[in-house]
Amino acid sequence: MNATPVTEKSPLRKPDGRTAGSTRSFLRAKLQQSLAFATLVVLLAFFSLANDAFFTWSNISGILLSTAVIGILALGTTFVIITGGIDLSIGTGMTLASVMTGIFLVNMQLPLVVGVLGGIATGALMGFINGFNIAVLRLPPFIATLAMMLIAQGLALVISGVRPIYFSSVQGFRDIALGTFIPGLPNAVLILFLLAAVAYLVLSKTILGRYTFAIGSNEEATRLSGVDTRKWKIMIYTVAGLFTGIAGVVIASRLNSAQPQLGAGYELQAIAAVIIGGTSLLGGRGSIMGTLIGALIMSVLINGLRIMSIQTEWQNVVVGAVILVAVFTDALRQRRAGS
């Protein structure tokens, strides 16, 4: 997106080359986000009216907290999906990262910072290996990350001995997610928003972001333009891995334990958030803002349904239906724009 969205829309800017055409495509790009945003507002309004307990600070802060982990995973995977790829390893990868954090901090008793960085590095390493397998060995992303998903799941179980690792002995670890640097707001939420800001900057302002979109639009054309697409794809999957690692630390801190059995299924929720946010699985199109809104829509839905005492079993049904509607609406809009 552009640095000066206000002037972009202004018809007064036409003399320097901007015309109705560019404004329209700009608006079109915004529409999906505003569509997702409108959905979020409608959901908030609906649940607020349906139940008094919904729109309270403690519940909202709970929603944000429950968004944090999926949200962080979704931010990283947004990059991958914009390239036209997919990363299935982020759920169990997150688990492995949290188990390794436990090993570093509890078993090896390393300093807090080192243990946390070690956990994050675990995620980044997995991402790097994914990137290498996809870009250099040319495995399809689905296969490469499916394999990594199983490897990470297995390793998490083996390394932990299928037992949770508790962080009770580690001073300050719990504060990473649950401390309140800003009073009333859990740090995990702060981390989510900070990471979203960073991801936004990287995706929209840096060369990595530009190449992410370029690869997703037409990888071969990008490669023939002299862009070392192998290198950049490795970097993009490593970025996704970094976010996976951070999510691993955050979830470990929030649960005050590394749960080796957890994590499978998180990747699909994260991917769902990305897609609800308007990022195309075909690549070339997507935004961080959309992903953030997508993740919030999912949390708000689940929380709202829970508050309305709808059975857990039905919650998934509703989320599934929302994904269908979101993607269908988007496809409809695309078709109309295409014709």
């Binding site: 370029a214 071969e220 990008t222 023939l224």
Partner: peptide
């Protein structure tokens, strides 16, 4: 196919 990012 090989020259342009058509959607960009």
């Amino acid at each position: 196919l090989f020259g342009l990012l058509l959607e960009q």
